[in-house]
Write a protein that binds this DNA or RNA. Structure first.
Lengths: 331, 331
DNA sequence: ATGAAAGCGCTAACAC
DNA sequence: GTGTTAGCGCTTTCAT
């Protein structure tokens, strides 16, 4: 049989409330405390988180909803969140929502039944109703890497605008002026495009709408889009791809069209994932400070859980340009 | 205030035990049942998993311990496990152990305090003591993708021996006879090497121990090892790398040494991860049927949890050779 | 400083 | 078929 607080109390010759007090670090007489500690040790006693949660304590568990844990970038975030949470003695329950409102709702509901202490919602949470329910039920929530503006929530995001801006400015500095963008249909990409536009404007370069194309998230469709771009009468000399996978697609397109990278075409990725290092040539890309973002998200969440959150805040972390061999000067 | 079983009972005009019975699908009179259902609906009642678990019911949560969720292959496994578990209404708590015995112990202990219903231990669990404790405490455990022989546990693994065998046999069929192996120091690699040796023997080819090298898990060290191999007086014409990342290292080494792949050197990976498709050239590799393995692992675990497991079994799933452009005939 | 006792929300006999 | 009641293991007043 599992050993309970009663067993410990009996062994230590005190009452269960005394045991409870030592568990919760409440004032207890020196000698009783020692006896209890000894008894706990001897019996290898572990308090039941269930029972304690039932009486109003926390479960020390947080729900982490994300689009798809199989996505390497997100997996990396999961790892960081997990590590940070464990530092505080919290466990993380991961649920992949595939951007499906319905799954989002189901998982949130499931996790609430299990009384998780709070949620981190990462990378595009569709179901606003669920979010509002969480807010109105006063459940701690952090939005991570999610550009949507929820005024009443704490969010942690990378500065996508700046990332797009820096990438573009770098390409301009290399002499490029016809720079295409292969984007996804989401808020992050839109921000990156804004940065791109800003950089062009600051250099008095025209923005050609036909150089900005939107694709789904596969390398294949990026490849076909990039091919069309290259076959056009006045092809771009550089392509900014809104993530590394899209950039791989562009790379394949260039190879197919016998366009040399980087001599004839510069290509950039975004996210600095593993494939940006292993591709040929390795990709110039933008590093997102995943670790810092995730640590902050966890810290903020736990602050809220423990009621010591000052107020909702928006945190913007800075991206970093990583120059590799997929870009070069344009003559 | 959260609505409880009492609220529902009151609203429906029945006793809490009747409500409990309808929740647990026990025989209840038609009309009472309907009233209860209505009340639950109206009050938006969700049973507390905590309370019910406290009385001996399950928590419908499983612990999934793995080396590192940031590893793409493992992330894919996590996704599959998660999906399958959700089909049964189970949640998954993921913990990355980094192969550290100490973390393994801490996480298992933490999760047991939270009364998870069972564990899936994936890809190399070091701490045998913890495993034995789990066994002796009669807690359901499945070993996933873990070649170590625990006689008293159900395991699900890919047939690494066969994978190594098929890869080697394929290279032999292409005319290769000097085939190197770049392996990791773990049970999977050892199995793959066994398959390699077997294939060589069946073709009456000699096994050269100096062609079998062991590295840590980084592309960098694989690269330097591959370089040495290529610089030797009698270099191999093919390299079997025990995972795709190592193969990328070999690819880089070949490029560095100006050895053409696949014309002068064939390279193979293992696992069929994303990078095996995006590399240049894309890698011939072995696909591990992750989805099937994970589904089976979850099914077996839940069978054990529900007490309807027949007996411990060893499941071996079959790998599949994927031929891409990193291998070619040797003249 | 310590203990007795009343819950937390639910399940499972047991009685009606 | 339905209700009563005693726990599950813990926290928390409230006495002592």
């Amino acid at each position: 049989m599992k050993t309970t607080i009663y067993d410990v109390a009996e062994k230590a010759g005190v009452s269960i409330s005394t045991v409870s007090k030592v568990i919760n670090h409440q004032p207890v007489g020196m000698k009783s405390k020692q006896k209890v500690l000894d008894a706990m040790q001897e019996l290898n006693y572990k308090p039941s988180v269930l029972a304690s949660a039932l009486t109003g304590k926390r479960t020390s568990t947080i729900g982490f909803l994300l689009p798809d844990i199989a996505n390497p970038l997100i997996a990396e975030m999961a790892r960081r969140v997990e590590d940070r949470a464990h530092e505080y003695g919290f466990n993380v329950v991961i649920c992949s929502t595939d951007f499906k409102s319905e799954k989002e709702e189901r998982y949130v509901s499931l996790l609430r039944q299990k009384r998780v202490d709070g949620f981190i919602l990462a990378g595009g949470f569709r179901n606003k109703e669920v979010i509002h329910e969480l807010i109105s039920d006063n459940i701690p929530v952090i939005l991570l890497s999610e550009s949507q503006p929820y005024s009443s929530l704490t969010t942690v995001t990378v500065d996508n605008f700046l990332g797009g801006y820096e990438l573009t400015a770098y390409l301009i500095s290399l002499g490029h002026s016809r720079i295409a963008v292969i984007a996804e249909d989401n808020a992050s990409s839109r921000e990156r495009i804004r940065g791109y536009s800003q950089a062009l404007q600051e250099s008095d370069l025209d923005i050609h709408e036909d150089l900005i194309v939107v694709t789904d998230s596969t390398a294949e469709s990026a490849q076909s889009l990039a091919s069309s771009l290259l076959q056009s009468s006045n092809p771009p000399t550089a392509m900014i791809c809104c993530n590394d996978i899209l950039a791989i697609g562009a790379l394949l397109a260039a190879r197919e069209e016998h366009v040399l990278v980087p001599e004839e075409l510069s290509i950039t990725g975004f996210d600095n994932t593993l494939i940006s290092k292993s591709s040929d040539p390795p990709l110039t890309t933008v590093e997102v400070p995943v670790q810092s973002m995730c640590s902050q998200a966890v810290d903020l969440l736990i602050d809220e859980i423990e009621g010591k959150a000052s107020e909702k805040q928006k945190i913007l972390v800075l991206p970093k340009l990583i120059v590799r061999r997929s870009t070069s000067r344009f003559h």
